[in-house]
């Protein structure tokens, strides 16, 4: 049995476009890959009455989230023919318009990468103990709820 290795998925603040570009670049040497699928979650400036969301401050039960992510990762690798999978989620403040979730799957053929990416996003939102506090224009806040 191989050793259980927890991968950190958390980054402080927004996921930068540069980090995403670098991540794509790193796969150029893996020539068995024929398809990548990428999901980017972006903070939306929702209108709440008179106020607008200016950013989301994320907190997590980090140890549990990484354990849970390990389980999800194993299950997805089991289910789909993937070459690799990368997940990054923000902690701390992410301004509206910035990226807070980056899910990246790769496979020989497109279907596996696309379906795995979709399932990962759903499971991450439903199962990881992460909380978003929406910061409003007047600096008040409300707790985000996933739909």
């Amino acid at each position: 049995m191989r050793e259980k290795k927890l991968k950190n998925i958390f980054v402080n603040g927004a996921v930068s476009a540069q980090a995403i570009a670098d991540s794509i670049q790193k796969h150029h040497s893996k020539t068995n890959i024929g398809a990548h699928s990428i999901f980017l979650g972006q903070v939306r400036a929702d209108q709440i009455g008179e106020q607008q969301v200016t950013g989301i401050n994320y907190t997590a039960y980090e140890e549990m989230a990484l354990e849970k992510m390990y389980e999800i990762r194993e299950a997805i690798f089991e289910k789909y023919e993937l070459t690799c999978m990368h997940i990054h989620h923000s902690l701390g403040l992410v301004a509206a318009g910035e990226i807070c979730l980056f899910v990246f799957t790769s496979s020989g053929h497109r279907k596996a990468a696309m379906q795995a990416c979709d399932e990962l996003v759903e499971r991450i939102k439903a199962e990881l103990p992460i909380w978003g506090k929406e910061i409003l224009t007047d600096e008040s806040h409300q707790w985000k709820e996933n739909k």
Binding site: K125, W131, G132, K144, N146
Partner: peptide, 10 residues
């Protein structure tokens, strides 16, 4: 013991 409101990541 962790008390966890509904998750809202992503």
């Amino acid at each position: 013991v962790a008390l966890m409101p509904p998750f809202s990541g992503g």
